[in-house]
Simulated scan of single mutants.
Amino acid sequence: MAELRYDSGPGVGGMDGPAEPLPADPGAPGAGGPAEDPGTGLLDRAHALLAAHPVADGYSGLPWALRHLPWFDLELGESAVATDVPRMRQGHVGALFWALHLPEGLTGDRAVSATLEQLDLVKTVVRAHPDGLRLGCAPGPVTDVRHCGRIAVLPGPAGAAALGDSLGILRSLHGLGLRALTLSGASWASEAGLTRFGEEVLREMNRLGMLADLSGASADTLRRACAVSKAPLLCARSAARALRPHPANLPDDLLAALGAAKGLCLVPLTAEQTGPSVRDVADHLGHVREVAGAHSVGLSGTYDAGSAHPQELADASCYPRLIAELLRRGWSDTDIALLTWENVQRVLREADFTAREAQRRREPSTLTIAALDG
């Protein structure tokens, strides 16, 4: 048994408690499914599609949730969280980003050290669960992990506070495995947009191959990032504001700008941002696909991040129900393959290609926030 033990720390407000019991598949014999029951045929087809094109999940809050458990075993199954290996296999999850969540207001050296501790935890957890998990920090290794029958874990996104306003720390975090950083909540990435130092951070991220996440960033920051970045951008937890006026959701003009820049909007499966039912999530996915394009929409489970989920999407095993709903609405196999796996792989490949090209032309930046924004 791959069991880990930690001292139980103080609880974190808003973190998920024990996962809700998983209701029976709506298409299963004898299961009284909801009115939107897609039927056994569509659910079977959804499982078949996901077996070929698994879910690349854009955001999981698991590291911080695990930090506060006295012990856990993700391979056997862990009822205290919504994400474990059996449920990810049932939901056909092939890769997922493990967010390095920080408590509200944590800044400076404390934010840097907390991020380092979580990076260490991610590696420790993956090493302790070798039959189910492997680190996959680039498109090639992610695909290799999938072919080995494991689930690829990509560390990130981390919060901008993790940098401590230092490009050297950015490079160190990348060297330790960090693969995405959220550009918001810092002096250089605020409501006013990216400062000159913020633009330098983004250029250095391009050189490293680190993905930039713009979820929760201001409109000015997102627009400027689209203009500066040579690699595709992510919005790791953003749905359509036209359907639900949540501040982290994107209005249509920003969705169109993200699509034009070949970026990726990963729609969260949360009741707060998308709505209380699987149909609401499908509405958002359809809207983002229509506005940004089929190559710019993906999925973000947002499990174990302190969010309530639609009733039919309570944990990581439930992705087939969402895909069955999309099939019922006429989504093609090609568009579903893009949604679940191919779009994330494209962004990883393009970020890797951009980094290799940038490293031929650009040395590591030594510029400081004082020199650029002072």
Results as ranks from 00 to 15, higher is better:
D7M: 08
D7Y: 10
S8W: 03
G9S: 06
V12M: 12
G13P: 04
P18Q: 07
L22N: 14
A24Q: 10
A24N: 08
G27P: 11
G32Q: 13
P38Q: 03
G39T: 03
G39H: 05
G39N: 10
G41K: 13
G41W: 04
L42P: 08
L43W: 02
R45T: 00
A48M: 03
L49D: 05
H53W: 08
P54D: 07
P54I: 04
V55F: 06
D57S: 01
W64S: 12
L66Q: 07
H68T: 06
L69H: 03
L74K: 13
L74S: 08
E75I: 02
L76S: 15
T83F: 01
G91M: 07
H92E: 09
F97K: 02
L100T: 00
E104Y: 02
E104V: 01
E104K: 08
G105R: 12
L106W: 00
R110A: 03
A111L: 04
L116V: 03
L119I: 02
D120A: 15
D120Y: 09
V122P: 07
V126Q: 14
A128C: 12
A128N: 15
A128P: 13
P130I: 03
P130C: 07
D131G: 11
D131K: 12
R134K: 15
G140L: 11
P141R: 09
R146F: 07
L154P: 11
P155R: 05
P157D: 04
D165S: 06
L170M: 00
H174N: 05
R179Y: 04
T182S: 14
L183A: 10
S184V: 01
A189Y: 00
E191P: 10
A192P: 14
T195F: 01
G209S: 11
D213P: 08
L214M: 15
L214G: 08
G216K: 01
A217W: 00
A219M: 01
T221V: 03
R223A: 12
A225S: 10
V228F: 08
S229H: 08
S229Q: 09
S229F: 07
K230V: 04
A231N: 07
A236L: 09
R237M: 14
S238A: 15
D252C: 06
A256E: 06
A257C: 07
C265H: 09
A271P: 05
G275V: 01
P276K: 14
S277Q: 14
V278R: 15
H287I: 04
V288T: 00
A294S: 14
Y303I: 04
S307A: 15
H309Q: 13
P310Q: 12
Q311D: 08
L313N: 12
L313Q: 14
A316T: 03
C318K: 13
C318N: 03
C318Y: 01
C318P: 02
L322W: 06
L327V: 07
R329S: 10
G330H: 12
W331N: 10
S332A: 11
D333R: 13
T334H: 05
D335S: 09
D335Y: 07
A337W: 09
L338D: 14
N343F: 11
V344Y: 15
R346Q: 07
V347N: 13
L348G: 07
R356I: 01
E357V: 14
Q359N: 07
Q359A: 10
S365A: 04
